[in-house]
Amino acid sequence: MVADDISSAPADTGEDTGRSPALHISLSEIAFQGRSILENLQLSLESGKTTCLLGPSGVGKTSILKSIAGFLPLAEGSLIEASDHENLSGRIAYMDQNDLLLPWATVLDNVLIAARLSGQKPDSDKALDLLEKVGLIEKAASRPDQLSGGMRQRAALARTLMSDCPFVLVDEPFSALDAITRHRLQALMVDLMRDRTVLMITHDPLEALRIGHQIYVLSGDPVILSPPLHVKGAPPRIPTDEALQPRLQLILSMLGMTREDA
């Protein structure tokens, strides 16, 4: 698949130190409930950058993400490879649509759950530091049912970051939040996931423009994947920015939206 002609894709050497490697994904087939919904999908996640996979609801975005995470078996001929050629096992973090917080555990214990599950020593100092960064330090001893929706997603964000995984897969975690909370959390996520190689799926073009270094669009019938679109300027961007309007128009037309719809 050829990179979009407007910008040149940065060379991804995967040699940068302190930066997460790039990830090359080639999926021969994605099936949903036994039916093939997508074929021959090629995605390249740039090293230490955020890639958004944009598409309408029900197109199979979550199935793609789950296949990459290993929750769904890969079809024959699929290949997922990091640019450092190391094994992916234990290097992927996943952030679900739902916060998946444990209702019986405190926020702090929720952030520490990965260490407990994998038998490592829970690092409370680091967890508290992360809770400070996401602005939840005062809620460390609270249970999830005492938090608002935005706070719950911030706790989930802290839990995701706790593991220091170079690759982070994100399944539109902010879609259920109100606009202002979503806006703040997008900025927080960009800030905290800097230098990690992130793939985030979303159905919201504005969200993709706000946080993605590059954007893939899934659209059409049968569904096809666009070449990666690169967006100028460092995220988090203001999606209503004048300079971003041509990109937004392009994405909207790719999603099949015409002027009459506006």
């Binding site: 234990g90 992927i92 998946l100 990965a114 599950l117 994998s118």
Partner: peptide, 26 residues
């Protein structure tokens, strides 16, 4: 469960310890 198993890939525990912890914490 998916998330918990992904988190467990970080450690090097055997099947028995992983199952025990999955039951104990989740």
């Amino acid at each position: 469960l998916d998330l918990a198993r992904l988190m467990q890939q970080q450690g090097k525990a055997g099947w028995l310890m992983k199952t025990w912890r999955l039951y104990r914490y989740i």
